[in-house]
Simulated assay, not measured.
Amino acid sequence: MSKPVALIVGVGDGLSASLARRLHREGFDLVLAARDIDKIAGLGAETEAQLAVCDASRPADVDALFAALPGPLRLAVYNPSARQRGALIELEPEAVRHALEVTAYGAFLVGQAATRVMLAQAPEDGVRGTILFTGASAGVKGFPMSAPFAMGKFAQRGLAQSMARELHPQGIHVAWINIDGGIRNPGRTEPADRPDSMLDPDAIAESYLMLVRQQRSAWSEELSLRPWVEKF
C-alpha cells in the first residue's frame, strides 16, 4: 500500500525543514515544493522526498504539483508569504500585488487543490486529510510599515476560517497557525540572557503534528504559538 503523502509548499531551511524531518520520521511520503529546489536538494535527500518546482501564486504550477502526487494526500501545509515593508504612501502597487498573490492567493490555490484531492479519496477513521496554513501575528493585528503583510495574513486567516467551517463536516481538518514571534532559524540567534525567546522550529513542527493527530471530536481551527516571554 502507498504511504500517506504530506505536501509542504514553500520549503526553506527553517520551519518547513524541521517539519519535513519530523514528518519523515513519522512515516509520511514527502513532497517538498519550492520555487528553487536546488536550495533544498540536501533536505530532499535526507528525507527521501520528491521535490517539485512550484510558484504557488501560479495556477498552472499548482495544478501540475497536485497532478504528480505519488499517493493519497493526508497533509498539505502552506508556508509561503511575502513582505513588503514601507510607509503606506511609499509602497509600490505592483510590489503589494505580488505580496498578496504569494501570501493570500497562493494559499487559496493550494487550499482549493488540496480540498479537491482529499474529497475524492477515501477517509481513514472518518478523516480525509488535514490542511494547515502557517500564519503570523500580522493576521491578528496590523503593524505599522507592514500593510501588505497584514493584508495577506488577514486574508489567509479568513480563508482558513471559511474552509474550516465548510470542510470540517466533510472530514477535512483545516487550521491556521499564528506564529507569534521570531523563529530561531539557521543564522538567527537569541540573546544569551533570554533563552528560548525565539520559537524553536522543531517545537513548532511538533505542534503541527499534534494538529494532524487531533481527533475529529475536538479539532482546533486556530493555534497560537509564542515563546514564553513574547508579549500578547
Results as ranks from 00 to 15, higher is better:
Leu51Cys: 07
Val117Thr: 13
Leu30Trp: 06
Ser197Cys: 15
Cys54Glu: 01
Gly135Leu: 03
Leu225Ala: 11
Leu19Cys: 06
Arg165Lys: 14
Leu32Thr: 06
Ala114Gly: 06
Asp38Phe: 02
Asp202Glu: 15
Gly182Leu: 14
Arg21Trp: 00
Gly139His: 07
Arg184Gly: 06
Val102Ser: 00
Ser220His: 13
Ser16Cys: 05
Pro169Lys: 05
Gly139Ile: 06
Gly42Glu: 13
Phe143Leu: 14
Gln215Gly: 15
Ala95Tyr: 00
Glu26Ala: 15
Glu101Cys: 01
Gln161Arg: 15
Glu206Tyr: 00
Arg188Asp: 02
Ile204Met: 10
Ala205Ile: 09
Pro70Lys: 01
Met118Phe: 07
Arg83Trp: 12
Asp29Ser: 14
Lys39Gly: 13
Trp176Glu: 05
Asp38Ile: 02
Leu159Cys: 06
Cys54Gly: 02
Ala147Val: 15
Ala218His: 08
Ala45Ile: 04
Thr130Ile: 03
Ala192Asn: 03
Val127Arg: 14
Gly182Ile: 14
Lys141Asp: 05
Arg194Gly: 00
Leu32Gln: 06
Pro195Gly: 06
Glu166Phe: 07
Lys3Gly: 09
Leu225Ser: 11
Glu101Leu: 14
Glu92His: 14
Arg97Ser: 13
Phe108Tyr: 15
Ala164Lys: 08
Ala205Asp: 12
Arg157Asp: 04
Tyr105Asn: 08
Leu211Glu: 07
Gln121Tyr: 03
Ala67Met: 02
His168Ala: 13
Val110Thr: 10
Gln161Ser: 12
Ser220Pro: 08
Ala52Asp: 01
Asn79Gly: 01
Ala49Thr: 02
Pro144Met: 09
Ala6Ser: 09
Thr189Ala: 13
Leu69Asp: 07
Gly86Lys: 11
Glu26Trp: 01
Gly10Asn: 09
Leu65Gly: 07
Asp125Asn: 15
